[in-house]
Amino acid sequence: MDTRQLILDTANKIFTDHCDKKLLDAAETGEFASELWGQVTENGFDQLGSAGSGTELADMFAFVQQCGHHAVPLPLAETLLVNFWCGPQEGLSSFGELSGDRIDDVAWGRQAQRVVGIGVEGSTLTVVETPEVIGRGTNMAGEARDQVSVGSDATTVEATEDPYAMAALTRVNLLAGGLHRVLDLGLLFATERVQFGRTISKFQAIQHSLAIVAAEVAAAQRAADAAVDAIGTDRFVYEVAAGKARVGEAVGVVAEQVHQIHGAMGFTHEHSLHHYTRRVWAWRDEWGNEFYWQALLGNHLASLGADNSWDFIATRG
C-alpha cells in the first residue's frame, strides 16, 4: 500500500471513532477537541506536506478531503498549511484574512500558538506568534472563527504559491470531502426510510435526485483533484479558481436535494445531516465565493482572447 493510502486509512479510522455527533455538538459550542488533537499529532498528521515529513502537498490535500468528509472539528487544514509555509512547529497554527492590523476569521484562533495573515493580493504572509485574540466568533457551521491583532513583533514570510489561492484550495478539498458525506447520508436515509410500503429509494423522483447529487459530487471530486495537481504550475491560481467556482456551485444543489430527501428528520438538530450541510454552506463562502473566482478566471480568459480560450481549456493535465 502506498503512503497516501496508509495515511487516509489511518485517518479514516481515527475520525470514524472520534467525530461523532457528541464531539461535533461540543465543538460547535466552543469546546476544543483536545483528545482528538492528541491523536492527530501523535500520528504526525499535523506535519503532512511539510519538509522532512516524507509526504507531499498532494498527500496533505487528500487528508484534508478526509477532514471534510468527517467534519473534523479542528483547524487541521490551517495548521498544515502554516507548518508548510513557516516550518513545522508543535502546537496549533492557523490562518485568517489580513485586514490592516487585524487578522479576521482565524479558524480556532483562540487555541493557536501561531497565526498567519493572508492578504487578497501578494505572496507575503504576516506571521504572529502567541497571538492576542481580540474577538471570538463562528461561521454559520459553528466553527470557531476568531479575530487576532497584528502587533509590532509580527514577522513576514514569502510564500512560493499564491497564498490566497492556497487558502481557497483548503476549502475546495474540505468541500469535496464534505459533499461526498452529504451524498452518503442521502443514500443511507433513502434506503432505510419506508413510506407507501417500500423504501423511498424505490421512487423514481428520489432516484433521480440522488443521481443529480452523485454527478455533482463526482464533478466536485475531479475539480478538487485537478486544482491540487496544478500546484507548482503557472496555471495554479486559475485551476483553484475553476475548482472553487465549480465545487461551490455543487454545494447548493447537493445540500438542497439531500435535505429534501431527509424530510422533517433532516431538519432536526438531533439528526447529524446539518453538521455537514452547514459546513459546506459555510466553506463555499470562505476564501472567495463562486463569483469572486469565476470573475478572476473570466478576466484571464478575456485577456487571452476568444480564439485562445479553447487552448486554455485543452490542457494535458
Binding site: 475553476a242 465549480r246 469565476q294 470573475a295 478575456a302 481549456i313
Partner: peptide, 28 residues
C-alpha cells in the same frame, strides 16, 4: 468571450469563468 472584449464587466467575467470552470471539470 469575443463579445465581452478584453476588459469585461464583473458580471461578464463571472459568466465566462463560470462556464470555463464547468467545461474544464467535465473535460477531465
Amino acid at each position: 468571450v469575443r463579445a465581452c472584449g478584453e476588459n469585461p464587466a464583473p458580471h461578464q467575467a463571472a459568466a465566462i469563468g463560470q462556464i470555463a470552470a464547468h467545461l474544464m471539470t467535465m473535460r477531465r
